[in-house]
């Protein structure tokens, strides 16, 4: 066991962890942040996507020890003061959510895309989310949602993940 401090959604957590534990495991089982999903535990589906210092990563492949001293944002930390992030709002509004299991990862992937590229075209969006599987929607409305959120973010009505 090793003692570390994780900064998750703006809060510090002191934890005893095994060095081989993944960030996904620690988030779900030790911090009870079960909004982050496990779809494959092998880096193939993107359901476990979280933000580390604003960048989307697959938390099932990321060792928890490596996240010490970095800013981790999970889906639970995205809405601010009860207001949905524009990406979350857009997913709801255009019907990009069906079963919702891919949604946390997909939303965070989109947030990180828009941070890097505030006005992506449809092809860039499709490329950016191609590591996040969705079996329900056929991606059509997910792409639309991200396009809509990009408009919101660039017109300044959005909030960033900062």
């Amino acid at each position: 066991m090793k003692e570390i401090t994780l900064n998750v959604n703006g809060e510090n957590h002191r934890l005893e962890i095994e060095p081989h534990w993944t960030l996904l495991y620690v988030l779900r089982e030790k911090l009870d942040l079960v909004g982050t999903k496990e779809g494959c535990n092998a880096g193939d589906c993107g359901a476990c996507t979280v933000l580390i210092d604003g960048k989307a990563i697959n938390s099932c492949l990321f060792l928890a020890v490596r996240s010490e001293g970095r800013r981790i944002v999970t889906i639970e930390g995205l809405a601010q003061n009860g207001k949905l992030h524009p990406v979350q709002q857009a997913f709801v509004d255009v019907g990009a959510v069906q079963c919702g299991f891919c949604t946390p990862g997909m939303v965070l992937r989109a947030v990180s895309l828009l941070a890097e590229n505030p006005q992506p075209d449809a092809t860039e969006i499709r490329q950016a989310i191609s590591g996040n599987l969705c079996r329900c929607t056929g991606y059509v409305k997910i792409v639309q949602a991200i396009e809509l959120a990009a408009q919101d973010v660039t017109t300044g009505s959005g909030v960033s993940d900062e």
């Binding site: 909004g35 982050t36 999903k37 889906i75 709801v92 959510v97 069906q98 919702g100 949604t103 946390p104």
Partner: peptide, 20 residues
């Protein structure tokens, strides 16, 4: 056209699935 009634639970990560 109605967004799913439970889509907010799903976008904020509060929807509890089996393993949760």
């Amino acid at each position: 056209r109605a967004p799913l009634v439970d889509s907010i639970d799903k976008v904020v990560g509060s929807a509890r699935f089996g393993a949760d």
